[in-house]
Simulated scan of single mutants.
Amino acid sequence: MEKSSSLRPLRLGEQTKNFVFLGEAGSGKSEIAINFALSLHQQGGKEVHLFDLDMTKPLFRSRDQGEALAAMGIRFHCEQQFMDAPTVTGGVTRLLREERCYTVLDVGGDYIGARSIGGYAPLLNDSRTAVYYVMNPFRPWSMTIDHIDRVLGETLGVSHVQLDHLKLIGNPNLGIHTTREDVLDGIRTLTELVAPYKPLDFFCVWEPLYEQVKGAVSAPLLPIRLYLTYPWNRMPEDGSY
């Protein structure tokens, strides 16, 4: 796994030490959480702890790259599951409070996964923590404002994160099959649906498309490298689709 430098322009961690990623299943939370953790590690100065708190599905979880991340210097945390039994990963409260480290929480999809962080609400709603809600307009529950409002409301209800503390991220992607037109269409869709109610902090774009997209939109863009790809869904070696 290569280190990512994609997030350096955001100058992460200057006033924030904790980063939390919420959203529906398939929104891209785990990819973004991995990119954040790697960029924080590259900036140096503090140890980086990445927690995989996803208990809602067996695929596309940051633990799939847990060993590689640990080898690169990320302190990786997860609790192995047996069947569908709920599990609790230890150390979250202590590290959210610890000023000498960065903490990144990759939370499971929608309100079911968000239940796992409800007990940390006082720490999540303080000024040291940035809580991001990730929306992918190509996923079923982010296609209309009614769907977004319902899933977001349920997620905030069980996590006890305050709406005015929440930041929104747009992540228009279809994996390695994403095109420039997909990204631009997704940005337009989310801007029209959501921006009248709450501004989006930034949009993510697959790294190979960043140069093609950045001149076509005025919104802040964040190039993201994809790490969670499986053998049946990887880019061919010749770069073709």
Rank of each mutant, 00 (worst) to 15 (best):
L40Q: 05
L40E: 07
L40P: 04
H41A: 14
G45I: 07
G45F: 05
K46P: 01
E47Q: 15
V48K: 03
V48L: 02
H49T: 02
H49F: 05
F51L: 05
L53P: 07
M55N: 11
T56G: 14
T56K: 03
F60A: 11
R61N: 07
E67S: 12
E67T: 14
E67P: 13
A68Q: 06
A70W: 00
A71P: 00
M72R: 08
M72P: 05
G73D: 03
G73Y: 03
G73K: 10
G73H: 11
C78Q: 15
C78M: 15
C78F: 15
Q80N: 13
Q81I: 14
Q81H: 11
Q81A: 14
M83T: 14
T87V: 15
T89N: 06
G90Y: 08
T93E: 13
T93I: 05
L95C: 04
L95M: 10
L96S: 01
L96Q: 05
E99V: 04
E99I: 06
Y102N: 13
T103C: 14
L105V: 10
V107D: 06
G109I: 08
G109Q: 05
I112M: 13
G113S: 08
G113T: 02
G113K: 03
A114S: 14
I117L: 06
G118V: 04
G118F: 04
Y120G: 02
Y120D: 10
Y120P: 00
P122E: 09
P122D: 03
P122G: 12
L123M: 13
L123Y: 03
S127A: 11
S127D: 14
R128D: 05
A130Y: 04
V131S: 07
Y132T: 07
M135V: 00
M135C: 13
M135T: 10
N136P: 11
P137M: 13
F138Q: 07
F138G: 12
R139T: 15
R139M: 12
P140A: 11
P140H: 06
W141N: 13
S142C: 15
S142R: 04
M143D: 05
T144I: 10
T144N: 07
H147G: 09
I148L: 12
V151Y: 03
V151P: 02
G153W: 09
E154A: 02
E154W: 10
T155I: 06
T155E: 10
G157V: 06
V161R: 09
V161N: 01
Q162N: 11
Q162L: 12
K167T: 01
I169T: 07
I169Y: 02
I169Q: 03
P172M: 11
G175R: 04
T178H: 11
R180K: 15
D182V: 04
D182S: 06
D182Y: 06
D182A: 02
V183D: 01
V183F: 07
L184P: 05
D185E: 12
G186P: 03
